[in-house]
Design a protein around this nucleic acid. Structure first.
Length: 282
DNA sequence: TGATATGTTATCTT
DNA sequence: CAAGATAACATATC
């Protein structure tokens, strides 16, 4: 759900709203979600927010960072002086600003507050030394599809596995940031069946898919992400990509391209997989 | 009431 | 043994 475009929108929001703030205190309401010593952050000044795949690093000026993964339902929400006229909160967070779904509250100087909410509690935040960020899970990530993934590298990745191409796209150690929504949409756009063995793709298909991945991710970014479960940006509003998905979540609807067949849903590695049986080829 | 959803990791199976 | 499939995690929603 929160995939590259959603997490990137969270990063952009954090960068914007945390600017100029330092941390006054941290209220940890759930120790499983917040790991490490929050005292390391007291009086630390915000420096930058980075994204690694679906992970976010918030860097401070004292050598420490917060590394976070929102998994399915985590939300960072900011209220304070850097957002003087906050938009109305999405219904997806009304229960969670200091409510039962709030697990960490960062009190900032100048009166800002950053909440971490998580309905399902799969997400986590941990305090790490900035210079050790790369040793964390970050080191296991594959290349960023919008930055480091060359066609050459992509071709090598696909041709080295027999697994279904969709499973490869979602494998974070192969390519970082792609999840179920954008994997389904990129394959639809490429007219490739998600069940195809990745090594069976022709050179031409690989090139088409390579471009399609970039296209759907950029579209997701532009729409502010997809708010399927609980995703909201740090101002508390929803993204719009869920209204523009090409095939994801459209089981039973007529295919937008060929208009001849209904979108079928199957399970691939236990994940919902949507495709047009008429114009996505085996 | 219970099946279902997503990301990741641990564990089971072939 | 390794690749691949599936269960588990926690909870709201349909």
């Amino acid at each position: 759900m929160p995939e590259l475009p959603e997490v990137e929108n969270i990063r952009i929001g954090l960068e914007k709203y945390l600017k100029g703030h330092s941390i006054k205190s941290v209220e940890v309401l759930n120790r499983r979600i917040f790991q490490g010593d929050e005292k390391k952050l007291i009086d630390a000044k915000f420096e930058s927010a980075e994204r690694f795949g679906k992970m976010i690093a918030i860097n401070f000026n004292n050598g420490f960072s917060l590394l976070a993964h929102v998994k399915l339902t985590g939300q960072f929400i900011y209220r304070g002086p850097n957002l003087p006229n906050p938009p109305e909160l999405s219904v997806k967070v009304t229960d969670g600003l200091g409510g039962k779904h709030t697990h960490v509250v960062f009190h900032l100087n100048r009166g800002g507050v950053l909440y971490y909410n998580d309905i399902r509690k799969f997400g986590w935040i941990k305090v790490v030394e900035t210079k050790k960020l790369k040793n964390e899970a970050v080191s296991k990530l594959g290349p960023e599809p919008l930055k480091d993934l060359t066609l050459n590298l992509f071709t090598k990745t696909l041709s080295s596995s027999k697994r279904a191409v969709k499973v490869i796209l979602m494998d974070q150690s192969k390519i970082s940031g792609i999840g179920n929504i954008y994997a389904n949409d990129a394959l639809w756009l490429s007219q490739i069946a998600p069940t195809r063995s990745s090594q069976s793709l022709s050179e031409k298909e690989i090139k088409t898919l390579y471009k399609a991945i970039k296209k759907v991710l950029r579209e997701g970014l532009k729409q502010g992400g997809a708010s399927e479960l609980a995703f909201v940006t740090p101002d508390g509003t929803e993204g719009k990509y869920q209204d523009h998905t090409l095939v994801y979540g459209r089981e039973g609807e007529l295919c937008k391209r060929c208009k001849k067949a209904k979108i079928k849903k199957i399970f691939l590695s236990g994940r919902g997989t949507y495709f047009c049986p008429n114009c996505q080829y085996d």
